[in-house]
Protein backbone atom coordinates (compact mmCIF):
# COMPACT_ATOMS: atom_id res chain seq x y z
CA UNK A 1 0.00 0.00 0.00
CA UNK A 2 1.20 3.53 -0.77
CA UNK A 3 -0.18 6.48 1.14
CA UNK A 4 0.48 10.14 0.42
CA UNK A 5 -0.50 12.22 3.45
CA UNK A 6 -0.83 16.00 3.04
CA UNK A 7 1.99 15.95 0.51
CA UNK A 8 3.16 19.23 -0.99
CA UNK A 9 6.03 19.81 -3.35
CA UNK A 10 7.20 23.04 -4.93
CA UNK A 11 9.94 23.76 -7.41
CA UNK A 12 11.75 26.91 -6.44
CA UNK A 13 13.06 29.14 -9.20
CA UNK A 14 14.92 32.42 -8.97
CA UNK A 15 11.80 34.52 -9.47
CA UNK A 16 8.85 32.25 -8.66
CA UNK A 17 7.60 28.90 -7.35
CA UNK A 18 5.95 26.12 -9.35
CA UNK A 19 3.40 24.12 -7.40
CA UNK A 20 3.70 20.43 -8.25
CA UNK A 21 1.64 18.95 -5.42
CA UNK A 22 -0.53 20.96 -3.08
CA UNK A 23 -1.62 19.17 0.10
CA UNK A 24 -2.38 15.87 -1.63
CA UNK A 25 -3.71 12.94 0.40
CA UNK A 26 -4.40 9.69 -1.40
CA UNK A 27 -4.01 5.95 -0.84
CA UNK A 28 -3.22 3.27 -3.42
CA UNK A 29 -3.56 -0.44 -2.67
CA UNK A 30 -0.62 -2.63 -3.78
CA UNK A 31 -2.68 -4.35 -6.48
CA UNK A 32 -4.43 -1.20 -7.72
CA UNK A 33 -3.89 -0.27 -11.35
CA UNK A 34 -3.78 3.48 -11.06
CA UNK A 35 -3.54 5.85 -14.00
CA UNK A 36 -2.58 9.47 -13.41
CA UNK A 37 -3.08 11.79 -16.36
CA UNK A 38 -1.07 15.00 -16.46
CA UNK A 39 0.09 17.50 -19.01
CA UNK A 40 3.76 17.84 -19.91
CA UNK A 41 5.57 19.77 -17.19
CA UNK A 42 2.82 19.23 -14.62
CA UNK A 43 5.11 17.12 -12.43
CA UNK A 44 4.68 13.48 -13.49
CA UNK A 45 8.37 12.67 -12.96
CA UNK A 46 8.44 14.51 -9.64
CA UNK A 47 5.35 12.64 -8.43
CA UNK A 48 6.86 9.36 -9.61
CA UNK A 49 10.07 10.13 -7.70
CA UNK A 50 8.15 11.11 -4.59
CA UNK A 51 6.09 7.91 -4.69
CA UNK A 52 9.21 5.77 -5.16
CA UNK A 53 11.13 7.65 -2.43
CA UNK A 54 13.94 9.08 -4.57
CA UNK A 55 12.61 12.56 -3.81
CA UNK A 56 10.99 13.68 -0.56
CA UNK A 57 8.07 16.10 -0.41
CA UNK A 58 8.52 19.59 0.98
CA UNK A 59 5.64 18.88 3.35
CA UNK A 60 3.73 15.76 4.30
CA UNK A 61 4.59 12.08 4.39
CA UNK A 62 4.69 9.12 2.03
CA UNK A 63 4.16 5.68 3.56
CA UNK A 64 5.01 2.52 1.61
CA UNK A 65 4.46 -1.12 2.41
CA UNK A 66 5.37 -3.93 0.02
CA UNK A 67 8.08 -3.56 -2.55
CA UNK A 68 7.75 -0.87 -5.17
CA UNK A 69 9.61 -1.05 -8.47
CA UNK A 70 12.01 1.46 -9.94
CA UNK A 71 10.42 3.34 -12.89
CA UNK A 72 9.67 0.86 -15.68
CA UNK A 73 12.12 1.10 -18.57
CA UNK A 74 14.50 3.48 -16.86
CA UNK A 75 18.07 3.37 -18.17
CA UNK A 76 19.24 5.49 -15.23
CA UNK A 77 21.02 2.66 -13.39
CA UNK A 78 22.86 1.44 -16.49
CA UNK A 79 26.50 2.51 -16.68
CA UNK A 80 27.75 3.36 -20.17
CA UNK A 81 31.14 1.72 -19.61
CA UNK A 82 29.71 -1.65 -18.59
CA UNK A 83 28.24 -4.25 -20.92
CA UNK A 84 24.54 -5.01 -20.85
CA UNK A 85 25.15 -8.29 -19.03
CA UNK A 86 27.37 -6.61 -16.41
CA UNK A 87 24.79 -3.90 -15.83
CA UNK A 88 22.11 -6.53 -15.34
CA UNK A 89 24.41 -8.50 -13.03
CA UNK A 90 25.13 -5.58 -10.68
CA UNK A 91 21.56 -4.30 -10.63
CA UNK A 92 20.15 -7.75 -9.89
CA UNK A 93 22.76 -8.21 -7.13
CA UNK A 94 21.66 -4.91 -5.68
CA UNK A 95 18.04 -6.05 -5.75
CA UNK A 96 19.09 -9.44 -4.28
CA UNK A 97 17.75 -11.39 -7.23
CA UNK A 98 19.22 -14.52 -8.81
CA UNK A 99 21.84 -13.16 -11.19
CA UNK A 100 21.83 -16.13 -13.59
CA UNK A 101 18.04 -16.22 -13.95
CA UNK A 102 17.78 -12.44 -14.34
CA UNK A 103 20.58 -12.34 -16.91
CA UNK A 104 19.04 -15.20 -18.92
CA UNK A 105 15.63 -13.52 -18.84
CA UNK A 106 17.04 -10.15 -19.98
CA UNK A 107 19.18 -11.66 -22.74
CA UNK A 108 16.25 -13.62 -24.07
CA UNK A 109 13.65 -10.83 -23.71
CA UNK A 110 15.76 -7.92 -25.01
CA UNK A 111 16.87 -10.03 -28.01
CA UNK A 112 19.76 -7.77 -28.96
CA UNK A 113 22.16 -10.56 -29.89
CA UNK A 114 25.86 -10.17 -29.14
CA UNK A 115 25.33 -6.54 -28.13
CA UNK A 116 24.21 -7.89 -24.77
CA UNK A 117 27.88 -8.49 -23.98
CA UNK A 118 29.15 -5.20 -25.45
CA UNK A 119 29.48 -1.85 -23.64
CA UNK A 120 26.17 -0.07 -23.08
CA UNK A 121 27.68 3.04 -24.71
CA UNK A 122 27.71 1.20 -28.06
CA UNK A 123 23.96 0.56 -27.99
CA UNK A 124 21.52 2.40 -30.22
CA UNK A 125 18.78 4.18 -28.21
CA UNK A 126 16.26 1.49 -29.15
CA UNK A 127 18.54 -1.26 -27.84
CA UNK A 128 19.03 0.57 -24.57
CA UNK A 129 15.27 0.89 -24.18
CA UNK A 130 14.81 -2.82 -24.96
CA UNK A 131 17.31 -3.93 -22.34
CA UNK A 132 16.02 -1.50 -19.72
CA UNK A 133 12.46 -2.70 -20.27
CA UNK A 134 13.59 -6.33 -20.16
CA UNK A 135 15.29 -5.70 -16.82
CA UNK A 136 12.15 -4.02 -15.45
CA UNK A 137 10.10 -7.09 -16.36
CA UNK A 138 12.70 -9.53 -15.03
CA UNK A 139 12.09 -8.47 -11.44
CA UNK A 140 8.77 -9.11 -9.76
CA UNK A 141 7.38 -6.33 -7.54
CA UNK A 142 4.16 -5.82 -5.59
CA UNK A 143 3.63 -2.55 -7.43
CA UNK A 144 5.21 -1.24 -10.60
CA UNK A 145 5.62 2.43 -11.27
CA UNK A 146 5.88 3.93 -14.71
CA UNK A 147 6.65 7.45 -15.83
CA UNK A 148 4.74 6.98 -19.07
CA UNK A 149 6.69 3.95 -20.32
CA UNK A 150 4.67 0.83 -21.02
CA UNK A 151 6.71 -0.55 -23.90
CA UNK A 152 9.90 0.04 -25.86
CA UNK A 153 11.47 -0.46 -29.27
CA UNK A 154 9.77 -1.12 -32.59
CA UNK A 155 6.23 -2.34 -33.30
CA UNK A 156 6.89 -6.07 -32.78
CA UNK A 157 8.83 -5.52 -29.60
CA UNK A 158 6.15 -3.23 -28.22
CA UNK A 159 3.62 -6.06 -28.39
CA UNK A 160 6.02 -8.27 -26.47
CA UNK A 161 6.53 -5.55 -23.82
CA UNK A 162 2.82 -5.00 -23.35
CA UNK A 163 2.18 -8.74 -23.12
CA UNK A 164 4.88 -9.03 -20.43
CA UNK A 165 3.46 -6.07 -18.53
CA UNK A 166 -0.09 -7.47 -18.67
CA UNK A 167 1.26 -10.80 -17.42
CA UNK A 168 2.93 -9.04 -14.47
CA UNK A 169 -0.26 -7.11 -13.72
CA UNK A 170 -2.09 -10.39 -13.01
CA UNK A 171 -0.17 -10.46 -9.72
CA UNK A 172 1.00 -6.87 -9.21
CA UNK A 173 -0.29 -3.34 -9.17
CA UNK A 174 0.70 -0.40 -11.37
CA UNK A 175 0.96 3.34 -10.96
CA UNK A 176 1.15 4.78 -14.45
CA UNK A 177 1.78 8.48 -14.93
CA UNK A 178 1.14 9.53 -18.48
CA UNK A 179 0.00 12.33 -20.70
CA UNK A 180 -1.93 9.89 -22.93
CA UNK A 181 -5.43 8.85 -21.87
CA UNK A 182 -5.22 5.88 -24.23
CA UNK A 183 -2.29 4.37 -22.28
CA UNK A 184 -4.23 4.77 -19.06
CA UNK A 185 -7.31 3.13 -20.54
CA UNK A 186 -5.24 0.17 -21.66
CA UNK A 187 -3.57 -0.63 -18.35
CA UNK A 188 -5.48 1.03 -15.51
CA UNK A 189 -8.76 0.69 -13.67
CA UNK A 190 -8.55 3.75 -11.37
CA UNK A 191 -7.96 7.21 -12.74
CA UNK A 192 -6.75 10.58 -11.54
CA UNK A 193 -5.98 13.89 -13.20
CA UNK A 194 -2.98 15.82 -11.90
CA UNK A 195 -3.98 19.44 -12.18
CA UNK A 196 -2.91 22.59 -10.30
CA UNK A 197 -1.13 20.51 -7.66
CA UNK A 198 -4.15 18.32 -6.93
CA UNK A 199 -4.85 14.68 -7.73
CA UNK A 200 -8.47 14.69 -8.89
CA UNK A 201 -10.19 11.29 -8.88
CA UNK A 202 -12.05 10.47 -12.11
CA UNK A 203 -14.37 7.70 -13.27
CA UNK A 204 -12.62 7.26 -16.60
CA UNK A 205 -9.47 8.34 -18.40
CA UNK A 206 -11.64 10.46 -20.71
CA UNK A 207 -12.99 12.36 -17.74
CA UNK A 208 -9.40 13.04 -16.64
CA UNK A 209 -8.63 14.20 -20.18
CA UNK A 210 -11.66 16.53 -20.14
CA UNK A 211 -10.55 18.05 -16.84
CA UNK A 212 -7.11 18.82 -18.24
CA UNK A 213 -8.52 20.05 -21.56
CA UNK A 214 -11.10 22.40 -20.16
CA UNK A 215 -9.58 23.56 -16.89
CA UNK A 216 -6.65 25.49 -18.21
CA UNK A 217 -4.59 22.74 -19.72
CA UNK A 218 -4.44 24.10 -23.24
CA UNK A 219 -4.31 27.66 -24.33
CA UNK A 220 -6.98 29.15 -26.57
CA UNK A 221 -5.05 28.70 -29.79
CA UNK A 222 -6.31 27.78 -33.25
CA UNK A 223 -4.78 24.30 -33.21
CA UNK A 224 -6.05 23.49 -29.72
CA UNK A 225 -9.53 24.46 -30.88
CA UNK A 226 -9.15 22.16 -33.90
CA UNK A 227 -8.00 19.38 -31.54
CA UNK A 228 -10.99 19.88 -29.24
CA UNK A 229 -13.42 19.68 -32.15
CA UNK A 230 -11.71 16.57 -33.47
Amino acid sequence: MISLINVSRYHRHADDHTIILNDVSVQFESKDRVGILALGGAGKSTLSRIISGVERPDQGHVLRSGNLSFPIGTTAGFHAGLSGSENVKYLSQLLRRNVRETTDYCESFADIGTYFHRPFSEYAPGMRARLAFAFSMSVEFNTYISDGVTSAGDHGFRDKCEAALFERLNRSGLILLSRHARSLNRFCTKFYALHAGKLLPCETAEEAQDILDYADGYGDTYWNEVARRA
Partner: peptide
Protein backbone atom coordinates in the same frame (compact mmCIF):
# COMPACT_ATOMS: atom_id res chain seq x y z
CA UNK B 1 27.88 11.50 -9.53
CA UNK B 2 28.53 8.26 -11.48
CA UNK B 3 26.49 5.90 -9.29
CA UNK B 4 23.82 8.36 -8.14
CA UNK B 5 21.10 6.69 -10.18
CA UNK B 6 21.44 3.58 -8.04
CA UNK B 7 19.27 5.42 -5.51
CA UNK B 8 16.35 4.28 -7.70
CA UNK B 9 17.15 0.69 -6.79
CA UNK B 10 16.74 -1.22 -3.55
CA UNK B 11 16.71 1.76 -1.19
CA UNK B 12 20.34 2.67 -1.86
Amino acid sequence: STHRHLVHFANV
